[in-house]
Design a protein around this nucleic acid. Structure first.
Length: 375
RNA sequence: GGAGGGGUGGGAGAGUGGCUAAAUCCAGCAGACUGUAAAUCUGCCCGCUUCGGCGUACGAUGGUUCGAAUCCAUCCCCCUCCA
């Protein structure tokens, strides 16, 4: 740990890389999966258990935390890490995703986004400057520029307009970050451009000129499908700085992650393991399983007898099934825990395979066991 | 023995002549979930179905009516109160 933000690639296998991001709050092994803790909590999980699954870093969200409890209040408590008892790295999203997901509650201008709070309807303005200011108040180790994340399909002209707005916001974000951030913190730029090669290329080039310590690919997994997402990555990641971390935002299912790692992505986040866990879906070596299905009512085997994770190893499927049927809190807690551990095991497997130069074998085995298609 | 109330789909419970295969909730079955407005949402849930329908249905039987879960008669069962 140097006290600075740095990225070291230790091994490559094809386009895939494994390495370490060094931050003042600890290292992040890549390819990394970052559990999502939007409102200052990875839902249904204790922070120490999140760590025990193998997570090096988690996410928080600018939009949600600025509304409640408020960025200044979190700062007065000593920052988000201390507030939520997670001492390791935190990446905060800028609120850019809410520009899409809360489309009914916001208005977009050159200046920024004005939101109606989904909590009480009050009016709030999020500009690139304010988003960075909030992320600094929260104390985020990796911060994201405010961007517009448009849904697909989208016309070329509109995608271009949106992408260029995100670029202007990238510059503004960068300026404020220089002014307000502390040493060791990093700001990532976000590549947009929908599924248009020329636009993605333009976005990457302009962001490289601004020069960020890491770059993310945004606007994917928004309805275009796995094959199309991979097609976009195929013509995008090769232009991204190989010496900097590449972060694919909001992705994804295990098969999405495996395919994206093979295309040179280093970081992921997704609500799926936590949300699906709360909803009764367990991800396993053989693919997803719905624990509420009647066939599990009498299944005395655990989800994974060989696992190091208590949730996967020490509770029968029949018991988990019962907890969900009975509406007991412990059901969502255990499946979230299991899913996060499964995701971290997947990442550990990918890192080991890249280091050993056996990623192709790893992918073949993954496809064989899950029956997933990975182009 | 007397007075009153009631029997509707797995459960609760609407419906009091046609728009009712019958609201709604629960249970049951299945599906979805990708930078979290999500412990959420969607579909199915009498039988058969080529998914357009067809056949049986609201305690039982018999009536009235063009038409009944809804009106009438009788019977069976349940509940409350009084003796």
């Amino acid at each position: 740990m140097s006290g600075e933000f740095s990225f070291t690639v230790a091994a490559t296998d094809g386009a895939a890389r494994s390495g370490v991001i060094d931050t003042p709050r600890g290292e992040i092994r890549t390819p990394a999966f970052m559990p999502v803790g939007t409102a200052g909590t990875v839902k249904a999980m204790f922070p120490e258990d999140v760590r025990a699954t193998g997570a090096d870093i988690i996410l928080g969200n600018t939009y949600h935390l600025m509304l409640r409890p408020g960025a200044e209040r979190v700062a007065s408590f000593g920052g988000l890490h201390k507030f939520m008892n997670w001492p390791r790295p935190i990446l905060t999203d800028s609120g850019g995703f809410q520009v899409m997901s809360l489309a009914q509650l916001r208005k977009l201008t050159e200046e920024g986004v004005s939101f109606r709070s989904h909590i009480d309807g009050s009016a709030h303005m999020l500009t690139p400057e304010r988003s960075i200011e909030i992320q600094c108040l929260l104390g985020a180790d990796i911060q994201m520029q405010l961007d517009e994340c448009p849904a697909m399909p989208i016309e070329h002209e509109k995608a271009a307009e949106s992408m260029r707005l995100s670029l202007r916001w990238a510059e503004r974000s960068r300026r404020v970050f220089e002014e307000k951030s502390k040493p060791g913190q990093a700001l990532f730029g976000i590549v947009q451009g929908a599924n248009y090669e020329d636009l993605r290329r333009e976005s990457v080039e302009k962001l490289l000129e601004i020069d960020f310590p890491g770059y993310s690919v945004g606007g994917l997994a928004v309805g275009e499908g796995r094959a199309e997402m991979f097609r976009v990555l195929d013509f995008t990641t090769p232009h991204m700085d190989a010496a900097k971390p590449r972060y694919l935002m909001g992705v994804g299912k295990p098969a999405d992650i495996v395919g994206a790692v093979a295309r040179g992505i280093d970081m992921f986040d997704c609500v799926l393991p936590t949300r699906a866990g709360r909803h009764g879906q367990a991800w396993t070596l053989e693919g997803p399983v719905t624990i509420t299905n009647a066939r599990f009512a009498t299944d005395e085997t655990p989800l994974d007898a060989a696992s190091q994770c208590p949730a996967s190893r020490d509770y029968s499927k029949a018991y988990l099934h019962h907890l969900f049927k009975a509406g007991e809190y412990l059901g969502p807690m255990l499946l979230t825990w299991h899913n996060l551990h499964y995701y971290q095991q997947l990442m550990a497997g990918l890192r080991a395979a890249i280091a050993a130069g056996t990623l192709d074998d790893f992918i073949s085995e993954f496809k064989r066991r899950t029956g997933e298609e990975i182009v």
